[in-house]
Design a protein around this nucleic acid. Structure first.
Length: 108
DNA sequence: AAACTGACTAATA
DNA sequence: CTATTAGCCAGTT
């Protein structure tokens, strides 16, 4: 499969905001699983240009499995962008989901 | 070809 | 809150 379109979409997520797999899936006309798969098969080159760390699951939690330290890396990157994790390790999507309250298009 | 396996989600219980 | 279920689909065994 060609996930170029999806990767482009992810590149548009602004720093300090996150998007869910399902949300990206709807925007790209894919299924949530395809989005997860697309990110899971990112090679080094694209991982360098795609902000994969800004993608979390529908519960506002990090979904990386297997890869050791991967979850920590993602959490670290998000915190560096001023994203806040609740005590239970969740991100408040109402506050950090893309497009966030700072996106002019979302202003009434 | 069949079975398994995920960086998923939404709906129920 | 956790657990289960069904739907999902590309890659890997």
């Amino acid at each position: 499969m060609d996930y170029t379109r999806l990767y482009k979409l992810i590149e548009e997520i602004p720093k300090g905001q996150v998007a869910t797999y399902g949300q990206l899936a709807r925007l790209a006309g894919l299924t949530p699983r395809q989005v997860g798969h697309a990110l899971g098969t990112l090679n080094g080159a694209q991982a360098r240009r795609v902000p994969w760390h800004r993608v979390v699951n529908a519960q506002g939690r990090i979904s990386l499995r297997a890869e050791d330290g991967g979850e920590e890396l993602q959490a670290r990157r998000l915190r560096r962008e001023k994203i806040v994790f609740s005590k239970s390790g969740r991100i408040d999507l109402k506050r950090f989901a893309w497009p966030g309250p700072f996106n002019p298009d979302e202003w009434l």
